[in-house]
Amino acid sequence: MGIAQTAPRPLVEFTLSPLGDEHGIPLAIMGILVVFLALTLILAFISMLPRLLARFAPPAAQPGAPPLAAVDDRVSEELVVVIAAAVAETLDKPHRIVSIRGLTPAELGWSLEGRMHHHQSHGLRPRNR
């Protein structure tokens, strides 16, 4: 009566049969689809998020946004808006209004401005030209 000889188990076994099982290729395809679907839905949601927030929530001030311009109490809100619009129209490029204040009589601002305007209208040139 001989003892049954069992063949030594190879270090690496190779078989294609599990691939066709329920836990083979079908599971792999399902897994890939779920990952892509979840991340695609997140993508779609993120893409819509700024518009959704703009509709349902007022925009919050950005933490890195520049501070509002310091405005003199004597300057009315309407005047601030007009000045801001004039600056935007004149500069026509990104800018930041740091402060707006009314000039005191001592500064003779209007007189100075008028004088400068007057001189420029004469087309003055430097003497050495």
Binding site: E13, F14, L19, G24, I25, L27, I29, G31, I32, L39
Partner: peptide, 19 residues
């Protein structure tokens, strides 16, 4: 980030073929 996870499932299949 989703595409890279394909490697997970391909390796899963590879491990199945190695019993």
């Amino acid at each position: 980030g989703a595409a890279a996870q394909v490697g997970v499932f391909l390796t899963y299949l590879g491990a199945l073929t190695l019993a």
